[in-house]
Simulated scan of single mutants.
Amino acid sequence: MLQADSLLVARNLSLLAYKYEVDMADARTIQEKLFSNPQLYTEWNLYNPTAQKWFDTGKNGQKIVQLQQVFRIAGQRKTSIRLAEEEKRMTQWQYYELARSLKYELHVSFYRYYYLNNAIVNIRSRLDLLKNLIGIYELQYNKGNISLQELTRLKSTYFEINNKVNDTQTELVRLQENLKVLLADDRAIAPRREATDGVVALLPALTLPELLAKSMENRPEIKEAQSIQAQHQLRYSLARKEAIPNLTGGAVYDQNGSYVPNYTGVSVGLQIPLFNRNQGKIRESKIGIAQADVLLQSRRQEITRQVEAAWKIYQLLDAQYKASGTDFEAQLDLLSKGLVSNYSKNNISLLEFTDMFEAYNSSIIEVNQLKADLNKSYEELNYAVGEDLR
C-alpha cells in the first residue's frame, strides 16, 4: 500500500496538474514583492519657428526629460505581499485535500479489489469441481443412470453461482480501470495485502470526542476556511490602506522652456481623496469577513457530522464482522471443499448438496464484501478525521 501511495503522488495526473496551481500562486507572491517601475516622460521640440528649424533639440533647442516613481505608502505593499502568501497557503491546502481524496479512493479501490478477487479465486476452484461433476453426470444421464431433474438441478446451481462470480468480476474490471487511472499506469495492477496488515483495519482506543478534536486540528478544509478568513481580513486592511492615495515623486529637466535655461526640479504628487475613499471595497471586504466566519462554522459543522457518521458505520460493520467470527471464511472454505466429494459418494442428497453449495459459495463472496466494506469504513473515518489512525 505504501508503494501505491508513492506512485499516486508521483504519477497521478490530477495531482500533477494541480501542482502547477501551487507554482502559479508562488509566482504571484514573487510578483507582489516587486516594486513599481519608474516612468520616463520626454518631450522634444518639433519645429522652431524663430530659427525655422525642424527638430531643434541641440544646444539652443528645447527638450524636456521627466522621471517619476509611484510609492505605495501606508503599508500597502507589505499587506499585498501577505495577502499573496496567504493565497499561496490556501492553494497548498487545496492541493493536500485533493491528494487526500485521491488517496482515499485508491485505498478503497485497492482493498475492495483484493478481497473480491480473493473470493473469486476461492470459488473458482469449487466451480471447476462442480463443472467436472456435471460432465460426468451428463454421461450418466445419456446412459439412463440418473434423472434429467438431478442433472438440471446441478446445472442450475452452477449457473447461479457462476452468475454471481461474473457480477463480481464486472466490478473487478471497473476497479482495475480506476486503479490504472489513479496510478497513471497502463499495466494490470494486482493489489496484494502487506504482511504487516491485518485482515481488516483496527482502530486504536480513541473516543468519539477525541476523534472530533483531531479532525478540527487536521482537516485541510478547516485550514482552507481559516486561510479564506485571513485573506478577507487582509483585504479589509488593504482596502483601508488603499484609501490613502499613492505618492508620486520624480525629477524633471527642461532645457529652454522654463524661467531659466537648463532648469532642473523635483516633483511630488498625490490624488486628493475627495470623492473616492475606497468606500465600496472597504464595505465589500467587511462583508467578506462575515461570510468567511460563516463558512468556517459551516465547515466545522459538516466535518463533525462526517466524523460521527463514519464512526457509527465503522462500529456497525466491525460488530457485524466480529459476530460472524474471524475464521468464518476458513470454515466455509473447509466445508465447501468436501461437498462435491460427499455428494459423489452419495453421503448427502442432491437437495442438501445444492443448498449448501449455493450457501457456502455465496457466503464467501459476502464475507469478502463485508471485509471490503469494513476497510472502506475505516478509510472513511481516516478521511473524516484527517490522519491515518493505525
Rank of each mutant, 00 (worst) to 15 (best):
V165S: 06
L116C: 10
T157R: 01
G257Y: 08
A239E: 02
I161W: 00
E97P: 07
A4S: 14
L15N: 05
L274D: 04
N166F: 04
N346R: 12
R192V: 12
D388M: 08
L339I: 07
E171F: 04
K53I: 05
D388E: 10
T157S: 10
R124F: 07
S156T: 10
I244A: 02
N117T: 04
K88T: 08
Y378F: 15
K286N: 08
K180C: 12
L129P: 00
V260C: 00
I272M: 13
K59V: 10
Q76M: 04
V181P: 08
D197W: 12
T170D: 15
E284S: 05
L335G: 02
Q320K: 15
K78P: 00
K155L: 06
D318C: 05
G280A: 13
E302N: 15
R235M: 10
L295T: 09
I73R: 01
T304K: 13
L211D: 03
N246G: 02
L351K: 09
N163R: 15
E32W: 02
L270Y: 06
L130Q: 11
V200F: 05
R390Y: 03
Q231W: 00
F357E: 01
R235Y: 05
Y47E: 03
L203P: 10
L270M: 15
P204S: 01
E217D: 14
N45F: 03
T264I: 08
Q68P: 09
D293R: 14
R100I: 07
L139W: 07
T170S: 14
Y236V: 00
L350D: 04
T79S: 06
M1E: 11
Q76A: 00
A292E: 04
A359Q: 15
A84G: 09
I365R: 00
E105L: 10
S285N: 00
L15W: 05
I313E: 12
L16I: 11
Q291Y: 09
V260M: 05
D56E: 06
L98A: 08
M356I: 01
L154P: 06
R390A: 09
R112W: 03
Y113F: 13
I365F: 00
Q306R: 11
E366T: 06
A225G: 13
Q331S: 13
T207E: 07
V181I: 14
R77M: 11
T207N: 01
K164I: 04
T29G: 12
V108K: 05
A119E: 01
A17W: 03
V268P: 03
L172S: 09
E329I: 10
A201S: 14
T42F: 02
V385Y: 00
E380G: 06
A119L: 03
Y383K: 13
L127Y: 04
Q52A: 14
R235T: 00
Q140A: 12
A74W: 05
S344W: 02
M90D: 10
V173L: 11
T91Q: 11
V266Q: 01
N361C: 04
I136Y: 07
K180G: 13
R100W: 09
L127G: 14
N276T: 02
I123N: 02
V367W: 02
K131N: 14
L148N: 05
N118Y: 08
Q320C: 04
N118F: 07
E43K: 12
E366V: 04
A359M: 14
K345T: 02
G135Q: 07
N60K: 13
K59W: 09
D197I: 01
Q94E: 12
A384V: 09
N178E: 12
L238W: 03
